[in-house]
Design a protein around this nucleic acid. Structure first.
Lengths: 263, 263
DNA sequence: GCAAAAGTGTTTAATTTACACCCATGC
DNA sequence: GCATGGGTGTAAATTAAACACTTTTGC
């Protein structure tokens, strides 16, 4: 639309009035066929050193009984005063519906768009373009999750043991892969790791998150050095208390909201 | 959609037949309102040390006379045997239409999705969700460009001098910013810099591309060292010939298609 | 006491950053 | 010859990688 040159504008059945108001009134919104648009959610957490993704089992065709990413339609309208919900809002709504958690109660969720997936045929029913989002849920919240619909059809899967056994519905395999790539790239460019630990955490707990996402073990000594550098940069600060472990109790730290960054 | 649990499925007016074929037949594709979906293109090149973006001036409302990213509708259909074109294909089609260049003649274009933009109200006519792509055009191809429609309404803008003066149409300002962030991040993670130089290039030419995208000058000596490391890694190889300059002729190199990477 | 994990240190290599400098060429 | 930019070298600071070692706790 937007930049469409005359030759590519939707066929118009009436002359365009130069006045914009009138133009909008008589614009043929129905001139082009439209796809359905959905959001699909890659909800991730880390449980006992393992990166997990939340899947739901489909109860209807197509892909009946297969596991799929949770998702749903974006609510839209052509009403000029209310065109419906934002993509981000749709993703948040789905996340809350799907987990029973509310952002109001749990604090801001990490929820970011990955990209759009729209291959023809990805949904046999109709043309569907899906905007994928990825969400990070702190392990502490996991037990509080009350799946929106049928409890028995919602489950956490280790991303490691997935991929081989279960063929996911639609192109969700591809969406999941793209999202994991994105998460791994974000890991050492952003602060997403802190979204997967509790309010306070030990060095090893943060390391476990890095290891789970990258899928490999990291040298504890070297990781500590990176950690100490983050403290120097004011990104992390020591918190009160200690965490009991299998051996010597560990210091706990807190993520210092990016504000205290500079000198 | 896909994972929609019964409560969130579109209202069905008839009972579902357990057989999938029959299910598809009577599926109510029109149950949810649908948005229009477009692709918007951020077409970039580097001309005389400057990062440029190709914009078109709108000839119609809304945003009449404002500059905008080129773009157009994605062609879709619910026909089960042909649901229309892929998002990537739509972006490529628009790119070819908009520039008059054909991938068949010019070799593969760099064209990658950025993400979807779908804020309500971004297009006052109707609810539009736009999938942004960014394309990189080698400077050598720029003179060959024959804008699709009205020549006088297509122009390269320096991204530097933009942003202040011209208010772009729709949310294209935001799309452009997000794309530039993406390009800068890709610069030292991928090989996009090679998409903006000729087949063979000098060290300084490649440096000029890096400088244009990052918006800052780089130390020639240090850049050379990074460059030599790329040669060691087999990413780049010396080509025959020299490039005449204002002083001493420079060696020219070639991008060695990532295959010769390892030992 | 002993295992287990916390925490510390060392060494080597690679990379980044900031410079100074030499040299070949066109004019 | 001399300015221009190609090309080279050096030194300090930071970071990454591999790995040995000490300390503190629970049991």
């Amino acid at each position: 639309m937007k930049s469409a040159k005359p030759s590519r504008e939707p066929p118009k059945r009436t002359r365009i009035d130069p006045d914009e108001g009138a133009f909008l009134e008589q614009y043929r919104a129905e001139a082009y066929a439209r796809p359905s648009v959905t959001v699909d959610l890659v909800i991730l957490t880390v449980l006992d050193h393992d990166l997990k993704v939340l899947l739901v089992q489909r109860s209807e065709h197509p892909f009946k009984n297969r596991w799929a990413l949770p998702g749903g339609f974006v609510r839209v309208s052509d009403d000029r005063n209310d065109q419906g919900e934002d993509l981000d809002a749709a993703a948040l709504r789905e996340l809350e519906e799907e987990t029973g958690l509310s952002q109001a109660a749990c604090g801001k969720f990490f929820l970011e768009q990955v990209r759009a997936f729209g291959k023809p045929g990805r949904d046999p029913r109709m043309r569907v373009i899906s905007v994928a989002y990825y969400a990070l849920v702190r392990p502490g919240l996991v037990p509080l999750i009350r799946p929106g619909g049928d409890v028995s059809h919602t489950r956490w899967f280790s991303v490691g043991e997935l991929g081989d056994k279960h063929g996911l519905a639609f192109d969700h395999e591809e969406i999941l892969k793209a999202t994991l790539d994105r998460a791994r790239a974000d890991l050492d460019r952003t602060s997403i790791a802190f979204e997967l630990v509790a309010e306070t955490f030990t060095i090893q707990e943060l390391r476990a998150v890095h290891e789970a996402i990258r899928g490999e073990t990291l040298d504890p000594g070297n990781f500590r050095k990176k950690f100490l550098r983050m403290i120097e940069d004011g990104l992390i600060e020591l918190a009160r208390g200690k965490r009991a472990t299998a051996s010597k109790p560990a210091h706990v730290y807190r993520f210092a909201r990016g504000d205290a960054a500079s000198v």
